[in-house]
Every structure is written in structure tokens, then in C-alpha cells.
Amino acid sequence: MEYAVSIRKLSKAFGKSPVLKNLDLDLKKGEFAVVFGPNGAGKTTLLKLIATLAEPTGGSVFVSGFNAAEEPEKVRNEIGMLSHEPYLYGELTARENLRFFGQMYGLDKQKLEERIAHLLKEVGLETRADERVNTFSRGMKQRLSIARALIHEPSLLLLDEPYTGLDPKASEVFENLLKSPAFEGSSKIMVSHDLERSFALCDRVLVLNAGRFVYDGLKTNFSGFEDFREKCAPLLT
């Protein structure tokens, strides 16, 4: 079976300090996993290793069957990443930002323009498409950032603390977008400290602590959020 993400004996150390220790993970296609864990558990490092933004000390990462060490460009082509930082150029307009990233992913001109128009509509920014990103609010930047992450129709979305800096209304907009057809079919791994919101969205819960998965199970294993919090709270400290 080809998984969206397959991780084998993955480890990462900074100098002599180990951050991730022999992790194994298989994420099915279309699955939405949330990784919880205390600060310094290695959550962001895990996402960076999957995204080929860092090199592992040991082990291997496969995305849609591509080995991250041997075919990093093919792996990157499969990935869309959303972070607490918007990854957008402030001096360019919303449309220009999407066009630039679309060009970098090698989309052909006509398809790219159609995709830009569709995504801007999807994230509710079609009326601000030709305004500079510097003039946008944090929530608008995050919505545009979602469009940027989806521009090349990635099969895997990596979401690194996407709620950071968002007010409740912007968070709601973000969640509605995650549930929208634009995200259908893509697998997702989200790292978040917002337990309740993230739990509501996911299919699978992973708890990372001191560089190891200390819990890995389906959301359906819990009767609800309170049950999850009761059982997993000791693992999150």
C-alpha cells in the first residue's frame, strides 16, 4: 500500500542533543493527523524533515512513494505547507504572490491564471487580489497563505501552528476552508497547541513527547474532546 507519508526510524539531533528518536509513521491517503506535544517535543522539526527543509540524522521519509533524501524535488512537489508565518511577499499583490509560487511549481500559464482566480474566490480575497499583501490584516494574510499552499494542488498539506495570531473569527474562516472542497482528497498533518480546535478537525491523534510518539490512535478511540483531554493530558507535559 502506498501511503501519503511513510517514516522509518527517523531521528534528528542538533549537535549532541537528540530531538527526534527512531520515529515510525504511516499516514494513509486522505487522512488528517494532528500532532500534539509540549514545547520542544520535536513537532516542527518533524514537519521540516517531511518537507525536506532539514536533513535527518538517521532514518528515512517517503512522501507519495518518493524518498525525501533521493528525490527531494519530487517530494516538495507533493507538499503544501502552511505555517504561522504567511510565506508571502509584502511588496507584491495577492495575485502576484500566487502567480510567482505557481510559476515556481511549473504550472502552465493558462491553468495558473484559472487556478489563481479560483483560489482567490475560495479564500474570499477576489476583491483584494490586486492589492499589496503589506496592506492585509493577519487573517487575510493567512487566508492568502492557504491559497499559496494549495496553488499546485498538493497531495499532502503540512500545517505548522496555523492558528497562531488568528482571532476567533479568522480561525473560524480558516477551519471552514480546511473543510471545504479545495482541501478534499489531500492528506494533512497539523502541529498545534490548540487542542480543542485541532481535535475537532482531525481523524487521527499523535502525541509527540521528548522526540518519541507516546500516543498514536484514531479520534474515534475517544468519546469526545473531554475524554481525549482526560486521557492525553498527562502525555502533553
Binding site: 524535488e73 516538495r76 505547507m81 505555517s83 509560487f101 515556481m104
Partner: peptide
């Protein structure tokens, strides 16, 4: 500096180019 603002360097590094 332009690239480091808003994390754009990470976004560039995520693009499928060497």
C-alpha cells in the same frame, strides 16, 4: 532580508527546484 520577512525563504526552499 526580503526573503526572511514573513518566512519567504522557507517558502522558496519548499519549491521543487534545486
Amino acid at each position: 532580508v526580503l526573503e526572511s520577512e514573513n518566512g519567504c525563504l522557507e517558502a522558496l526552499k519548499l519549491c521543487p527546484v534545486d
